[in-house]
Amino acid sequence: GQQPALAAGHSLGEYSALVAAGSLSFEQALKLVANRGKYMMEAVPPGLGTMAAIMGLDYGKIEEVLKEVSSGLVQVANWNSDEQIVIAGEKRAVEEAMEKLRAPRAVLLQVSGPFHTKLMSPAAEKLKADLDLVTIKDPAFPVISNYTGKIITTAAEVKESLTKQIVNPVLWYPSMMTADQQGIEVAVEFGPGRVLTGLLKRISRRWPKPPALYNIDDLASLEKVRQAESGG
């Protein structure tokens, strides 16, 4: 089959991208993500933290307002698109932020913790220790880091990205802009649902040449994409 020009994965999906690129083995990734989930659940007591999706405000505006929150820690957790940003932190601080932001639409998410925030620091430390014991390879093709929104090509960058993405926002919008700079013509989302292709459809509508978008979640959809890209 064809080798991708690059790969990216949202949050946990970064591990899938790295397995596809040969940087981690499937077995290594399974153990790491199992521990990652355990460490993140242990980092913050249930009910203390939460997340909220903010629609219709730009990143800069949200960052400025979050600095004014005084009731606890809250920060950007996911920069999903130019019009959808997720904030996370201590529950009372997230609620205060929602009041101050006065966004066109804001929704508290049904999640178990304030992921991708500094509150996850204990989890990041434990995961770093696990990563130090794993043999990580340079990716066979470029992977875009959640942590930087830029391409990473070395094992050292992979380790840094996986450690730091736990306590920093997923920079998905900048990641997709990086993909555009690489001249992608086709984007394929693997797995159930079309959340990421939906985001990319909205992000790329201002690009001179938006990519063709596909989703593969079973053998039938794989064959459909193969036929579409081979001209039938």
Rank of each mutant, 00 (worst) to 15 (best):
D138R: 14
S145Y: 06
E157S: 01
N168V: 01
F190E: 00
A93Q: 02
E95A: 01
M120Y: 02
Q165T: 00
G149W: 09
L196M: 10
M177D: 15
Q181E: 10
G113L: 05
I151M: 10
K100M: 08
D180K: 15
K137M: 06
M98K: 12
S112H: 12
K100F: 07
D130T: 12
V195C: 04
A140Y: 02
E90S: 03
F190N: 02
V107K: 15
K150C: 13
R92G: 03
E95L: 00
V188K: 06
G113S: 00
P174H: 11
L196K: 02
E185Q: 14
L171F: 11
F190T: 07
Q165P: 00
I136Y: 02
P104A: 08
G193H: 06
E99I: 03
A179I: 01
F190K: 08
A187D: 05
P142H: 00
V188D: 14
M98S: 10
N146C: 03
G191F: 02
A155W: 13
P192D: 11
S112P: 11
I152L: 03
A88V: 05
N168L: 07
E95T: 00
S121L: 14
P192V: 04
K137H: 09
Y173F: 09
Q165E: 14
F115W: 11
M176E: 10
E96S: 00
K137Y: 03
E90G: 00
V167N: 04
H116M: 03
Q165G: 04
L109Q: 07
I166G: 01
E185T: 15
V195G: 04
K128N: 14
G113T: 01
G183A: 07
F141K: 08
L108H: 08
I166R: 02
S121K: 14
S112D: 09
T197I: 10
G191D: 02
E95W: 00
S121T: 12
E185C: 09
G183Y: 03
T148L: 07
K100R: 12
T197W: 04
S121A: 14
V94L: 10
P114M: 06
V170I: 09
V195H: 05
V134R: 00
T163D: 10
T154R: 15
A103I: 14
T163P: 12
R194P: 12
A123T: 11
A129R: 14
R102E: 15
P114C: 02
V111L: 14
F141L: 07
V195M: 06
A93K: 09
V158D: 12
P174F: 10
A155Q: 11
D132Q: 04
A129K: 12
P104W: 08
W172T: 13
S121P: 05
Q182D: 01
R194V: 09
V107H: 13
